[in-house]
Design a protein around this nucleic acid. Structure first.
Lengths: 127, 127
DNA sequence: CGGTTAATTAGCTGATTGGTATATTATAGG
DNA sequence: CCTATAATATACCAATCAGCTAATTAACCG
């Protein structure tokens, strides 16, 4: 069994699963309802499997109502993932700056030291 | 070949790879330097493989300096991932609010540090 | 009861992943 | 040239993943 963060990222690493989550953002839905947009590409058991991955990751909760299983979104695990990413926010912007610098000037050579302090957005991490 | 976002999330879904990225946040490093903390658990080719995953995801760029391959972090792909998550921010907080409600029902005292949740009333979120 | 609908389980496949050991390439330098 | 170092390539293995079909469970309803 992997760590929680890996499980979360792993669950997100599939377009079908992300689409399911997006659908659940608009509200509860049964398995069949969730599967409907994919039934041209994939069978119902396939969707069930994806749902199980999401369930194991804690991103989806399956209820029980007669023969239906109303699924609801639980975004709590995303909080940890977002927090992990937050640490890289400054680097995201730095990467874009570096690309911009490359496109603008190729004159300056070998500045191996960290050389982009000016565009660092003062964005703190919220706990 | 998967879409970019899946590739990014997939690359992040491994603690070794995340540790490599964390190490690269502190600056450039060669493959051996990156591998050093893991050599008790895994061999050098193993680390090379992880690096290749990160490289394919565009998160790491390998340079060339004599027989060394200085690796640098490129957080740009994280931007898309963060943007995707941003859509769920309100849902994350909704989840936490639900948790907050739970905490409010059991912590009335002002000194919050000593009031641990009652273990008999365990928070079994789902089975 | 029997039939229908909702969903899961089981069993099978092929592809991918994560790891290994070993061999190979490439470069530095005595 | 020879050797040591850095890193990758190759080949192999076990485990997991994503998908299918077919069978099964579970609940409702006529």
């Amino acid at each position: 069994m992997q760590d929680t963060l890996s499980q979360t990222f792993s669950a997100l690493a599939d377009p079908t699963r992300r689409a399911i989550l997006a659908r659940l953002r608009t509200g509860e839905a049964t398995v069949s309802q969730l599967a409907e947009p994919f039934l041209g590409r994939m069978t119902l058991p396939g969707v069930t499997k994806h749902l199980k991955v999401l369930e194991r990751a804690g991103l989806v909760t399956k209820g029980r109502e007669a023969q239906w299983r109303p699924c609801t979104l639980n975004a709590a695990p995303l909080k940890d993932a977002a927090q992990w990413m937050e640490e890289y926010r400054v680097h995201m912007e730095a990467s874009l700056d570096r690309l911009g610098d490359y496109l603008k000037t190729i004159t300056i050579s070998t500045d191996s030291t960290t050389s982009t302090p000016d565009t660092t957005d003062d964005d703190d991490r919220d706990a």
